[in-house]
Design a protein around this nucleic acid. Sequence first.
RNA 1: UCCUCCUUAGCUCAGUUGGUUAGAGCACCUGACUGUUAAUCAGGGGGUCCCAGGUUCAAGCCCUGGAGGGGGAGCCA
Length: 476
Amino acid sequence: MKNEISIADLYKIQPIGREITISGWVRTFRSNRFIALNDGSTAANFQCVVDFEKFEDSLLKRITTGSCVRVKGIVTKSLGKGQPIELQVQTIEILGDSDAEKYPLQPKKHSLEFLREIAHLRPRTTTFGAIFRIRHHLAFAIHEYFNKNGFFYIHSPIITASDAEGAGEMFNVSVLDKRNIPLTENGEVDYSKDFFGKEANLTVSGQLEAELLAMGLGKVYTFGPTFRAENSNTARHLAEFWMIEPEMAFYELKDNMDLAEDFLKYIIKYALTHAADDLAILDQRLAEEEKSKPADQRSMPLLEKLKFVTENAFQRITYTEAIDILLQSPYHKKKKFQFPVEWGIDLQSEHERYLVEKHFNSPVIITDYPAAIKAFYMRLNDDGKTVRAMDILVPGIGEIVGGSQREERYDVLLSKIRQFGISEESLWWYLDTRRFGTCPHSGFGLGFERLVQFVTGMSNIRDVIPFPRTPGNCEF
RNA sequence: UCCUCCUUAGCUCAGUUGGUUAGAGCACCUGACUGUUAAUCAGGGGGUCCCAGGUUCAAGCCCUGGAGGGGGAGCCA
């Protein structure tokens, strides 16, 4: 291990009187005496005190915002009020200069839009440092939760040849010469000449493969990248995002809901205990932003919201009950909804918002949707018109989890596949699991970036992934 | 993809009814000061007013087209 202490450990240990060496990036250099140094290990800067009479001017001039330095000195109690300890600097080594005139980050508040354009430098800001550390803690908590609860982490393929998931437009994977594409007699692209001998795409979901693993290993989960070529331009869509998909044999819909709720509470609690400093920074940031909004549009403070979610039961209602609530609502009676409400519709954003933010003011699990608006693999209820689906909606984000009990009955599944116009030949392997030792099973998908959004309070999904991929944007 | 708003200095923004040499704060540079907390004070440099056309004696401002970005919607996680 490297024999240098991190700023995070420094604040933990507070080794007053000891000689230490630290490296980091300069945030500001005040009064030709105080370096605010950050090494990314924690949000807090560490104050390094320079006796400028003991150093060459030419060296001091190179200590600029953005430059990288290594300093050695003695830790002392701080004379100033902003920090408990500081470093009395003995030696300074400039590891990397940074021309202050050209370095885009200044010791001041920058807009998120501007920082998005310099995504290669934004990890050096307080806000993005906090976001990416929290992102790590959430990912870690997810693995920890599943590991503790007997789940196996499996890797579903990134490249798939099935286009049957029905989860949107896909990115084609091909090595064919684009200037000379082989065609069949019908004038279509001849994928038999392509790398895999058939058309291949980037995965839009690992669910079907996860089901195969669950029906052998019992409880499994995936956590990997997912790709959608939809032309979606919103604050909650990415072309490349990360998804968590647990899949459990012998779980019915209620077990699935119980798991999803327990799981979400666990990882949010984990963040509250392991990323308290970073969450406090984002809590303040959000509070500042909310100040500029009219009072009735302000959302709950971030930390309060997260505690509320971990301490209160999620509301559980069926789709049919949700429609009733909407029909009874003052919003509907005053005709404030832009889209009509009736049984059978797909709930619009405004409807979900009303239920989550106005009616319940809490996370809501909606179950038993009409079969026609949900995927083919969801288990048909005895009423013949609804399926055992469940969506978890949270304030500010909307749908964060989508899941269901899967259709385990071969005949029902086959007729659904035909009904949906999906080629049953391409899903022979999926159908096989229902022919040989089928069992009730369930699972759900959690959009990781939406979870990070919820926990950090960031309103744009492009600000919770280091290098966002969206239509027309693949920089860095 | 649709609706809507925006684009002026490195950043955040002002710019009146179309009228002389386009401004401010921060950042940067120079100097002063030196236990500061986005240090302070004085001075200085810095502009393809998003791009291409058009109207006009005159366009940052008006018109047409385009590009980029924000917010909302759809699709969804």
